[in-house]
Measured scan of single mutants.
Amino acid sequence: EINVTSHGEEQAKHWIELAKRMNLDVEVEIHGDKIIITIK
């Protein structure tokens, strides 16, 4: 399980695309200006 804290939408999209390509599950939480991505 990987937790990524992203401070930008572009960076977040990059991680989500990467996870989808690798067929991994992704959870995205938004806390103000921080985007927390959990890849399982």
Rank of each mutant, 00 (worst) to 15 (best):
E17Y: 15
G32Q: 09
E17P: 14
A19F: 15
I35T: 01
A12Q: 03
E29V: 10
H31L: 09
I36M: 03
R21F: 12
K34H: 10
E27G: 04
T5E: 07
I37A: 01
L18A: 02
E27T: 13
L24E: 01
G32R: 07
I30D: 01
K13T: 04
K20T: 05
G8E: 08
A19Y: 15
N23A: 11
T5H: 07
W15D: 05
A12I: 14
E1Y: 12
E9N: 08
N23Q: 07
I2F: 10
Q11N: 08
I16K: 06
L18Q: 02
R21M: 10
M22K: 02
I39F: 12
H31Q: 08
T38R: 13
K13H: 05
I16R: 12
G32I: 07
E10M: 09
W15H: 04
I37W: 02
N3K: 13
V26H: 01
G8A: 10
Q11E: 08
I16E: 04
E29Y: 13
I30E: 01
Q11K: 10
H14K: 12
M22P: 03
I30F: 09
A19R: 13
D25T: 14
V28D: 00
K13F: 12
Q11Y: 13
T5I: 12
E17M: 15
N3V: 14
H14Y: 15
E27M: 10
T38Q: 02
K40P: 01
G8I: 14
N3G: 06
S6G: 06
V28F: 05
I16H: 02
I30S: 01
E17R: 15
I35K: 00
K40N: 02
N23F: 14
E27L: 11
T5A: 07
I16F: 11
V28S: 01
V26N: 00
R21A: 08
A19S: 04
K13L: 07
I30P: 01
I37K: 00
D25C: 13
G8N: 10
E27Q: 11
L18D: 02
M22W: 15
I16Y: 09
H14D: 04
E10Q: 10
Q11D: 09
E1H: 11
K20V: 14
N23E: 03
M22E: 02
G8L: 15
S6A: 14
E10K: 09
H14S: 09
E27V: 11
Q11G: 07
K34M: 11
S6D: 05
L18R: 08
I30M: 03
E10N: 07
E17Q: 13
K13G: 04
G32A: 08
K20I: 14
E17D: 04
A12C: 15
E9C: 15
V28M: 03
H31T: 09
I35Q: 01
V28L: 04
K40D: 01
D33R: 08
E10S: 09
I37P: 00
L18T: 02
E10D: 11
E1K: 08
I30H: 02
G32T: 05
N23H: 06
R21I: 10
E10F: 12
K20W: 15
D33E: 08
E9Q: 09
H14E: 04
V26L: 03
I2T: 09
I30L: 03
N23L: 14
S6K: 08
I2R: 03
K34T: 09
L18C: 14
Q11V: 08
E9F: 14
K34S: 05
R21L: 13
H31W: 12
L24D: 00
D25H: 13
V26F: 11
I16Q: 04
H14T: 11
H7V: 11
N3S: 09
I37Y: 01
K40H: 03
E9P: 10
R21N: 03
I35A: 01
V28N: 00
H14F: 15
K40I: 04
I37F: 06
H31N: 07
T38C: 12
I2P: 05
D33Q: 07
H7A: 10
M22A: 02
T5F: 11
T38P: 00
W15P: 05
I39E: 00
V4G: 06
K34D: 02
V28Q: 00
D25G: 05
S6Q: 05
I35L: 04
E1G: 09
A12V: 12
N3P: 07
K20C: 13
E9M: 13
E1N: 08
V4K: 07
I36E: 01
K34W: 13
E1V: 12
H31I: 12
R21H: 06
G8Y: 13
E1R: 05
T5G: 06
H31A: 04
E9S: 08
I2K: 08
H31Y: 11
K40W: 13
E1Q: 10
E17H: 14
N3W: 14
I37R: 00
I16N: 02
G32C: 13
I36G: 01
V4T: 05
V4I: 09
I39G: 00
H7F: 12
I2Y: 06
T5K: 05
Q11H: 07
I30A: 02
E1M: 11
D33W: 15
I2A: 08
G8M: 13
H31P: 01
K34E: 04
I36R: 03
Q11S: 10
E27A: 07
A12G: 05
K13A: 07
E9T: 09
T38I: 10
I39C: 08
M22Y: 14
E10R: 06
H7S: 08
V26I: 12
A19G: 02
E10A: 09
A12E: 06
I30T: 02
K13M: 08
G32N: 05
T5S: 06
D25F: 14
T38Y: 13
I37G: 00
A19V: 10
W15V: 03
K20N: 07
E1C: 15
V4F: 10
L18Y: 14
N3A: 07
L18H: 02
H7E: 10
R21Y: 13
V4D: 04
A19Q: 03
K40F: 11
L24R: 01
H7L: 10
K20F: 15
R21S: 05
R21V: 10
R21G: 02
I35W: 13
V4H: 05
K34Q: 06
M22L: 11
I2D: 05
K40G: 02
V28H: 00
H7N: 09
K13E: 04
H31D: 04
G8H: 10
H7W: 14
H7R: 10
V26S: 01
M22G: 02
E9H: 09
K20R: 12
E27R: 13
E9V: 12
N23D: 03
I36H: 02
N3I: 14
I30K: 02
I35C: 03
G8S: 11
I35S: 01
E17C: 15
E1I: 12
G8R: 09
E17L: 15
E17F: 15
V28K: 00
L24W: 13
I37T: 00
E29F: 13
L24P: 00
S6T: 12
L24H: 01
I36K: 02
A12T: 07
K13Q: 05
I16S: 04
K20A: 09
L24A: 02
N23Y: 13
E29R: 10
I37N: 00
W15L: 04
E27P: 00
L18V: 04
E17G: 13
K13W: 14
I16G: 03
I35M: 02
H7P: 06
G8P: 08
G8F: 15
M22S: 02
D33N: 10
V4S: 07
R21D: 05
K34L: 12
D33F: 15
W15F: 07
E29S: 09
V28G: 00
E29T: 11
H31F: 11
Q11M: 11
K20D: 05
I35D: 00
I35H: 01
V4Q: 07
V28P: 00
S6R: 06
V26R: 00
G8W: 15
I2G: 07
E9K: 09
I36Q: 02
G32L: 12
V26T: 01
N23S: 11
L24V: 04
H31G: 03
W15M: 03
E27F: 11
A19I: 11
M22F: 14
T38G: 01
K13V: 05
I16P: 07
I37L: 03
E17V: 15
S6E: 08
Q11T: 10
V4L: 09
G8T: 11
A19K: 08
D25L: 13
M22C: 15
I2N: 09
M22Q: 03
W15K: 03
K20E: 05
